[in-house]
């Protein structure tokens, strides 16, 4: 197709914008990284010297070991429980037509459409009144809402891809629902389960609002602790906050890279579309 000069210029400006956006993104992440290793940085392009000592400071000052343990506990529990609840629910939704299915679909969809800040406030109120607010269990319960529904909606198309005759064959040979699940469905669904749980993992590490609204002093995850560190900037050296930011960034991006081996980047935002 011959392209006019106008079309070429247009394409060039679009690519320039993409380049400009990525350049700034890289510079933004880069400046955090450089600052976290910098000694003194004032009116120069780069710090005067480099030192790893801010990481040691952040490790002790922000009680990073405790925070990391809480983060692992929360994320681990959310991933396992949302898999245990979400996958069977998706199976039922994919295989059965029952009265009220549309309504069930709607209540699974709502938590993914309503932003966490909106439903988080009433949720935190209820959790605090049942004395679960501020505890690890409260944080896990809050984080499970978007995760359970996310897994369910993501898994429905995966279940639909499986030939129902495979299940019928298992039934003919006398397998119960539980046995069929463990021996037939889970192995067949493994790519889907892995993809959805990895996405839940990445989303839970980065889930700020719900954790922020429900966490107490001892149940903060990494992202909430980072928020409080940035919020109280000035109390501690900026480099140690950036060191903590780098720890958070590395944690998130490692899992993102693992997740991207199984899913397409667009799936991270399109939720349950495919």
């Amino acid at each position: 197709m011959p392209r006019s000069i106008g079309e070429r210029l247009w394409a060039l400006s679009v690519w320039t914008f993409i380049g400009f956006f990525i350049l700034n993104l890289v510079a933004m992440i880069g400046s955090v990284l450089v600052n976290s290793f910098g000694t003194r940085w004032f009116n120069t392009w780069l710090p005067n010297g480099f030192t790893p000592s801010w990481y040691a400071l952040a490790w002790n000052e922000f009680k990073l070991p405790d925070i990391l343990i809480v983060t692992i506990e929360v994320v681990g529990a959310v991933v396992i429980i949302s898999g245990l609840i979400g996958v069977p629910a998706a199976y039922a939704m994919a295989r059965r037509r029952f009265p009220g299915k549309t309504a069930v679909m709607a209540i699974f969809l709502l938590p993914l459409l309503v932003p966490p800040m909106t439903y988080g406030i009433p949720l935190a109120t209820v959790l605090y009144q049942t004395h679960l607010g501020g505890t690890l269990i409260g944080v896990i319960l809050a984080n499970l809402i978007p995760s359970v529904t996310f897994v369910t909606l993501l898994m429905i198309p995966f279940v639909e891809q499986i030939d129902p005759r495979v299940e019928s064959a298992a039934r003919v040979f006398g397998a119960s629902t539980g046995r069929m699940f463990v021996q037939i469905l889970v192995p067949l669904l493994l790519p889907g389960i892995l993809a959805s749980l990895l996405l839940v993992l990445v989303r839970t590490i980065a889930m700020f609002e719900l954790t922020f609204l429900t966490a107490g002093a001892t149940s903060q995850t990494l992202v909430v602790a980072l928020y409080y560190a940035v919020f109280a900037a000035g109390v501690r050296p900026g480099q140690s906050i950036d060191a903590m930011a780098v720890v958070y960034m590395v944690t998130t991006l490692i899992w993102l890279l693992i997740a991207l081996r199984f899913v397409n980047p667009t799936q991270i935002v399109t939720r349950a579309k495919r």
């Binding site: 980065a206 889930m207 992202v223 980072l226 928020y227 930011a245 991270i268």
Partner: peptide, 11 residues
């Protein structure tokens, strides 16, 4: 998107 608003704010 993955890093989230807190990390972007610090950056």
């Amino acid at each position: 998107i993955t890093l989230g608003t807190v990390m972007v704010a610090e950056g």
